[in-house]
Simulated assay, not measured.
Amino acid sequence: MSFVSLRDLRVSFDGVPVLHGIDLDIAKGEAVGLVGESGCGKSVTWLAALGLLPGKARVSGSVRLEGEELIGAPRPAVEKVRGARIAMIFQDPSSSLNPVHRVGRQIGESLRLHRGLRGAAAREEAIRLMDMVGIPAARTRIDLYPHEFSGGQCQRIMIAMALAGQPDLLIADEPTTALDATIQAQILDLLASLRRQTGMAMVFISHDLGAVSAVCDRAAVMYAGRIVERGDVSALFAAPQHPYTHGLFAAIPEIDADRRRLQPIEGTVPDPKHLPPGCAFAPRCPRATGFCREHLPDLKPQAAGGEVACFYPVSLTQPHREKALA
């Protein structure tokens, strides 16, 4: 049985569907990447799963944690899971940390809520967590405010807060987007190291294919509120089969190549209020036919491995994988 299982997860805002039946399984200790452009539904999937969407959102389907249903569960039951068994970190630590409270107090609050630690015990554990995530001189800096740390250090503090509840699953929602390239690499190394140390599972939400390849075992590609391709990272990166995944790889610049025009995916993600009747990617897809524009493909297993929601899947060659990993 999967540790976390999503089945037919759907979300709508003011009657407009934005998530169209997500099925996803996470095993214990596994790292799964969610990839796609902004607006594809990556973050909404897990905000819905954890009950963090605003009241106007309508959520249906099933989210089970070791068989325990979270959708529609009483608020106290969900709160016992959120932050304790499943924790989430966000892409902008400056908006997640409270600027008027010292970081030690903020980590201590998580320790009090999820592990019942108070006083000196909470302080020592907060220092230990800051050390674990690589904050230098943690013992002397625990009483500083967020603005006294760099952006990368603030993200490390957010990770420490997430680890305070000793979660079984960490949701990392684009945790490196607001950081420069060097700090991004450090945070990715930190997440991989923490996963090895703690044995926790991880969902890594990102539009950065290289980052996903660095920390994930499997990946799912999302488009317009649906998963359009998923499989093992190595196989998916070696030979992606959905035209959208194909386009994502083709758009990656090659540092050592001649000066040539990039190959962007023309157009934009469709407005959820005006989705095309068939495949949502058809208006942007160079392989689309009239059949694609009228019928919606299901996510189905492929002979080459993985699952793809496309009537005319394609494949890429090894060099594209090397581009993403560069």
Rank of each mutant, 00 (worst) to 15 (best):
P175Y: 04
P240N: 06
Q302M: 05
R156V: 08
Q155V: 09
L70E: 06
S150E: 11
R85I: 14
M202P: 04
I142E: 05
Y244T: 05
E294F: 02
Q241W: 01
L188P: 01
P313T: 03
A303C: 09
I107K: 05
R64W: 06
Y145R: 04
R226G: 00
L275Q: 07
I89E: 05
Y145G: 10
I127F: 03
G67C: 07
A280H: 13
R195L: 11
V11G: 04
Q166Y: 08
T177F: 02
T245M: 00
D208F: 01
T289G: 10
D232C: 14
P270I: 02
F237I: 09
A27M: 10
D92G: 04
D258T: 13
A219N: 04
R141E: 10
S206N: 07
E174Q: 08
K300A: 15
L9M: 07
C216V: 09
V308R: 02
G29K: 05
G15F: 09
R105A: 14
I127H: 08
S5D: 14
D208G: 07
P243N: 04
A49D: 04
H246P: 00
G306M: 08
R105I: 15
G119R: 06
A121L: 11
D232G: 15
F311D: 02
K273V: 13
D208Q: 05
I142P: 03
G39Y: 02
A309N: 01
L194M: 14
M202R: 04
A122R: 00
A122G: 11
S12C: 07
L248A: 01
R118M: 10
G39F: 04
E148Q: 12
E30N: 10
A192V: 12
G210T: 12
V203I: 15
I142C: 10
G134H: 11
P240A: 05
R261H: 15
L9Q: 05
V16D: 12
E125M: 09
P76Q: 11
D208Y: 02
E174M: 04
C292W: 01
P264F: 03
R85H: 11
V212L: 01
S62V: 10
S234A: 15
S62P: 03
E254G: 15
E109W: 03
P297C: 00
L24N: 00
A57T: 12
S94H: 15
I89D: 09
L117A: 09
A49P: 07
T182G: 09
V63T: 12
Q155P: 06
G165K: 06
A219L: 08
A192T: 14
G278A: 10
